[in-house]
């Protein structure tokens, strides 16, 4: 069964139709990239799937269970993890505590009065930080992280919760090229190893074509193409509205 099934979701803001009847699915162990011009409606799609905003119509289902309009919190309990386009970390906690917080929250112990957060799950947190390449930053305040590092921290936090569906909005924005690939390799490993479903957006075509099993192309809130990377790359409509001359040569 598909892990995530999106069926005809739509959402307008006043006169702007941001998402206009989008349908697609993500299977367990599959990596799906959502691409499209700026303002195509990708982030809005994420917000609809993740419950930040409610759709005007359409249905979102996870494991066949209707989750349309559920809160982000309810979706987290169903195994949905999300990173934001502009990364959101807890600025007044240390980098390690950020991950510890995610782990503790994942166990549903956010209210526990004892012992201190810094003494919980420290080893597991350090492993995750190591995985995303932030081991050296563990003691720093998260507010001090450079832009790209904050994105990695966010990923570590989400991975720590062992999600079944990962939603990542521009996960590698602000990173260097080989770091992008390293990060996507890491995510891909998790996807394959644990059978997680991944939906991500990205404007870096190397990352998209290098790491997606399937691509959904959005334009003006509608899906204009979907399929394997090769098929999408060859699609004239996609070239016309999105790729232009930047399309990398076939690998």
């Amino acid at each position: 069964m598909t892990l995530l099934a999106v069926d005809g979701i739509a959402r307008s803001f006043g006169a702007t139709v941001a998402v206009d009847g989008v349908s697609f699915g993500v299977a367990a162990g599959e990596r799906v990239a959502m691409i499209g011009p700026n303002g195509a409606g990708k982030t809005t799609c994420f917000n609809l799937i993740n419950g930040q905003i409610a759709p005007d119509r359409g249905r979102v289902a996870i494991d066949g269970r209707d989750t349309t309009g559920r809160s982000p919190r309810a979706l987290q309990r169903l195994g949905v993890g999300r990173t934001f386009q502009i990364s959101q970390v807890f600025a007044s906690l240390t980098v390690r505590e950020n991950v510890q917080a995610a782990l503790v929250a994942g166990q549903g112990r956010a209210l526990s009065p004892w012992p201190p957060l810094r003494r919980r799950e420290a080893a597991a947190a350090d492993r995750l930080l190591d995985q995303v390449g932030l081991a050296g930053e563990a003691e720093r305040g998260a507010a001090a992280l450079a832009y790209g590092d904050a994105k990695r921290l966010e990923l570590a936090m989400v991975l720590g919760q062992g999600p079944r569906l990962l939603l990542m909005d521009e996960p590698t924005a602000g990173m260097g090229i080989d770091e992008r690939h390293a990060l996507m390799e890491l995510v891909s490993g998790v996807v394959r190893g644990r059978g997680v479903g991944l939906l991500f957006t990205e404007h870096d075509m190397d990352v998209v074509f290098g790491h997606a099993d399937r691509i959904v192309v959005l334009h003006r809130g509608r899906v204009i193409a979907a399929g394997t990377p090769a098929a999408v790359r060859a699609d004239p409509a996609v070239r016309e509205v999105y790729l232009g001359a930047e399309a990398p040569p076939c690998a």
Binding site: P37, N38, A173, H203, Y242, L243, E246
Partner: peptide
């Protein structure tokens, strides 16, 4: 950063 390929161009 964050721009679609056409817009990067």
């Amino acid at each position: 950063e964050g721009l679609a390929p056409l817009l990067v161009a």
